[in-house]
Deep mutational scan, measured.
Amino acid sequence: VCKIPGCTKRYTDPSSLRKHVKTVH
């Protein structure tokens, strides 16, 4: 789960989560 408040994205792959946080937030 993305830890950013208001963001409901969920990832099973830690690298995908990291990429999401870097690119989306």
Rank of each mutant, 00 (worst) to 15 (best):
V1E: 10
V1K: 03
V1I: 12
V1P: 00
V1D: 12
V1T: 06
V1R: 00
V1L: 05
V1H: 01
V1S: 04
C2P: 06
C2M: 04
C2I: 04
C2T: 06
C2F: 02
C2Q: 03
C2W: 00
C2K: 00
C2V: 03
C2E: 04
C2Y: 06
K3D: 14
K3Y: 10
K3E: 14
K3V: 09
K3I: 07
K3F: 11
K3G: 08
K3R: 05
K3P: 07
I4R: 00
I4N: 10
I4P: 00
I4H: 10
I4F: 12
I4W: 05
I4Q: 09
I4K: 00
I4M: 10
P5E: 13
P5Q: 11
P5R: 03
P5W: 02
P5A: 09
P5D: 09
P5N: 08
P5V: 09
G6K: 01
G6C: 00
G6Y: 02
G6I: 00
G6P: 01
G6N: 04
G6V: 00
G6R: 00
G6M: 04
G6L: 00
C7D: 05
C7Q: 02
C7H: 04
C7N: 02
C7W: 00
C7L: 00
C7Y: 01
C7M: 02
T8C: 10
T8N: 14
T8R: 05
T8E: 13
T8I: 06
T8D: 13
T8H: 07
T8M: 07
K9M: 13
K9F: 15
K9P: 01
K9N: 10
K9E: 14
K9W: 13
K9D: 12
K9L: 09
K9V: 11
K9C: 06
K9R: 06
R10L: 07
R10M: 11
R10D: 09
R10K: 12
R10C: 10
R10P: 06
R10E: 15
R10I: 11
R10H: 10
R10Y: 04
Y11H: 10
Y11A: 07
Y11V: 09
Y11D: 13
Y11E: 14
Y11T: 11
Y11R: 03
Y11M: 09
Y11N: 07
Y11C: 14
T12C: 08
T12G: 12
T12P: 13
T12K: 14
T12V: 07
T12N: 13
T12L: 04
D13A: 05
D13I: 00
D13T: 02
D13S: 08
D13K: 03
D13W: 01
D13E: 12
P14L: 09
P14R: 05
P14D: 14
P14Y: 09
P14T: 11
P14F: 07
S15Q: 06
S15R: 05
S15K: 08
S15L: 11
S15H: 08
S15E: 15
S15N: 15
S15Y: 03
S15I: 08
S15F: 05
S16I: 06
S16H: 11
S16G: 07
S16C: 09
S16T: 08
S16D: 14
S16M: 12
S16Q: 13
S16K: 13
S16A: 14
S16R: 07
S16F: 06
L17E: 10
L17V: 05
L17H: 07
L17M: 11
L17C: 03
L17N: 05
L17D: 10
L17Q: 09
L17Y: 07
L17G: 05
L17R: 01
R18C: 12
R18Q: 15
R18P: 09
R18Y: 09
R18K: 14
R18N: 12
R18T: 15
R18S: 15
K19V: 12
K19F: 10
K19H: 15
K19C: 14
K19S: 13
K19E: 15
K19L: 12
K19G: 13
K19W: 10
K19P: 04
K19M: 14
H20W: 00
H20G: 05
H20V: 02
H20D: 10
H20R: 00
H20A: 02
H20P: 02
H20Q: 05
H20L: 00
H20Y: 00
H20F: 00
V21C: 03
V21D: 10
V21E: 15
V21M: 14
V21Y: 02
V21G: 05
V21T: 05
V21N: 06
K22M: 15
K22D: 15
K22I: 07
K22H: 06
K22Y: 14
K22V: 13
K22E: 15
K22N: 14
K22W: 12
K22L: 14
T23W: 03
T23I: 11
T23V: 07
T23G: 09
T23R: 05
T23Y: 03
T23N: 12
T23D: 15
T23P: 03
T23M: 07
V24M: 09
V24R: 07
V24D: 15
V24Y: 07
V24W: 06
V24S: 13
V24C: 12
V24I: 08
V24K: 05
V24Q: 12
V24N: 08
V24H: 11
V24P: 08
H25K: 05
H25G: 04
H25D: 08
H25N: 02
H25R: 01
H25Y: 00
H25W: 01
H25M: 04
H25L: 01
